[in-house]
Design a protein around this nucleic acid. Sequence first.
RNA 1: GCGGGCGUCGCCAAGUGGUUAAGGCAGCGGCUUGUGGCGCCGCUAUUCGGGGGUUCGAAUCCCCUCGCUCGCCCCA
Length: 414
Amino acid sequence: MEQLQSLRGMVDLLPAATSRWQWLEQTAREHFRRSCIREIRTPLLEATELFARGIGEATDVVGKEMYSFNDRGDRSCTLRPEGTASVVRAAIQHGLLSQGAQRLWYGGPMFRYERPQGGRQRQFHQIGIEFLGFADPRSDVEAIAIAWDLLEALGITGLQLELNSLGSRVDRQTYRDALVGWLSERQNQLDADSQQRLATNPLRILDSKNPQTQQLLQDAPNLEQSLSDPSRERYEQVKAGLSALKIPYLCNPRLVRGLDYYGHTAFEITSDALGAQATVCGGGRYDGLVEQLGGPAAACVGWAMGLERLMLLLGDESQQSQPPDVVVISQGNAAEALAVPVARQLRQIGQAVDVDLSGAGFGKQLKRAGKSGARWAVLIGDEEASSGQLQRKDLHSGDSSTIALQSLAENWIS
RNA sequence: GCGGGCGUCGCCAAGUGGUUAAGGCAGCGGCUUGUGGCGCCGCUAUUCGGGGGUUCGAAUCCCCUCGCUCGCCCCA
């Protein structure tokens, strides 16, 4: 490789794409503002231990996907692979929870060392919300509704909300034992990955894509049946809340999610237009995490969306960049000296002004100005420079008039 | 990390062993040295992602490598 290029899975966003990204981000920001959710920004780099303890040692994210390195002080650092752990850490560190429950959102790049694929990059972008200190099932409903409505505001259709309850810690332990016991007797019928997980993370076997494994699981103990009455009741309340909002959902008892901190409500919003990377939004409840990371007991619910995947669903029609309002054209020493000052004056009254600094002939500059889609051209040549009367040309109609350099800003009318 | 497909100019793309590697778009220059959007003319890859090999001869065949892509895996 002679040519220097971006690292694998690290993608440049070129000007043709950035306006679309800005629109997406603004739409999300506005949606969060209306939902009274405030932004939190945390560092991209954290102590490796935060993720190891927060997300779980046995998860794939921690086990094999982290960008970790030792810094000059020999501390193990990791580029954040997700947002929740950092937000929780920050909330604990700054005592946010002692000021009451927190409704927070975050956004920005995340890093996961994986083989890139459509909708999957090593540096990718998420936005997410975290409700810290909310135990009521209505908070699950509200969080999901906010995600659902944001996707609608973005104009994304054809989405499916899948819902499950992982129950309480005790429920999960009970179920886990039952599942491991049942599967152990049929270990030889499991695919290789699932056999591994039997020891490390048995619940994950549930959402294996291996058809034989899925077949086998038909008769396996069911997570729903292991739910305690309060857990079941809670789940019902969430479902009722969603139904009341007319948000359609599909109960999927196999929906497990890969991060250890989830319990009770877990959900995903998927699209069938994304190939293998179908999840657009994923989240759930993580009532034990704050305490686990050294904070007070605080029930929480949150989710994250992958922005690249949203972009894929929005279609990649690269938008034309906004054309300038005005292009300043000049020729000759005296005139060229005026070009930047004129542009600056017009910018001060709010015009989007481009300046042709090429030194090419009038014809050429005018041609480019026309192509740029600008409405106006301001022409400055020797005559204009000496008389102080600039020429202002309407590029749509071709009409020209003069405008005095002295009173340019005052007399400019778009 | 494992399998399949692909890689020719900024973009799209012909060429599949034989002299100088089509074409289109964009860009640049000119016709038109101070007045554009049309038109016409011209220019832009000693080189086919990179390296090595086979061959008299390779973009075209083989190996390695990098990258992209699809599936697995995983998740957003």
